[in-house]
Design a protein around this nucleic acid. Sequence first.
DNA 1: AAGTAAATTAACTATGAATCTAAATATACA
DNA 2: TGTATATTTAGATTCATAGTTAATTTACTT
Lengths: 112, 112
Amino acid sequence: MNLNIQHSFKALADPTRRQILVHLSQQEMTIAEITDQFDMTRAAIKKHLNILESGSLISVKTNGRERINSLETEGLRTITDWLSYFDQFWDKKLSLLQTAITNNENDINKES
Amino acid sequence: MNLNIQHSFKALADPTRRQILVHLSQQEMTIAEITDQFDMTRAAIKKHLNILESGSLISVKTNGRERINSLETEGLRTITDWLSYFDQFWDKKLSLLQTAITNNENDINKES
DNA sequence: AAGTAAATTAACTATGAATCTAAATATACA
DNA sequence: TGTATATTTAGATTCATAGTTAATTTACTT
């Protein structure tokens, strides 16, 4: 179920799930802590977390009886990779920016 | 209905709609031409086009009895803007890249 | 004006998604 | 061992989505 572009896009298509990601970007959280931030049952949040996990947008580690959810960038990378195909169709100004990025990427590669 | 982030994310959540965007990136097309590329009725494609339009991912211009659909980058920009918030959580290498982008953005703004 | 071609809309069906309540698991600790 | 805490799962409900066929509008063509 790893790195499925469809799962990643589906996961981002719900506003609650996008908000969860924003919260997790601030700090990793248990499902109880996440649920506190929403007007929704824990069971509902759990389903959202499952969907986020299947989109490689979060990862979960077990600590005793708690499960700690944290942001996982792999899914975000999948999405931006897909989107990057369209960069060539953006406006001139952005095209310039993209060229600059590409050049800088080369520089960075040389450094490492 | 303009520039609704939710509509843009929803629109990208369907694989057929993402494929339509890829086709439109090659050339603008009528609904008939798009339909030829898929194993699906024109009515179904029309619904997808409506959803893409409401996500500002395509725009439509009328030419006689034809409607020409073409890629509209505004929705893509909305998505990448949202995603860019998470750039700070990616790995070091990418962080460096982001800094480079920001610097170049400033340069470009100075120029214009 | 009549006929044809392109596109849209309407009405329906089947499946999936988001939510709830309630029950079941699993771990911690007194 | 028993109870409290954290999480997960099951089942039901409601609404949304993706698709179909059939009917309707709009604009060319002869």
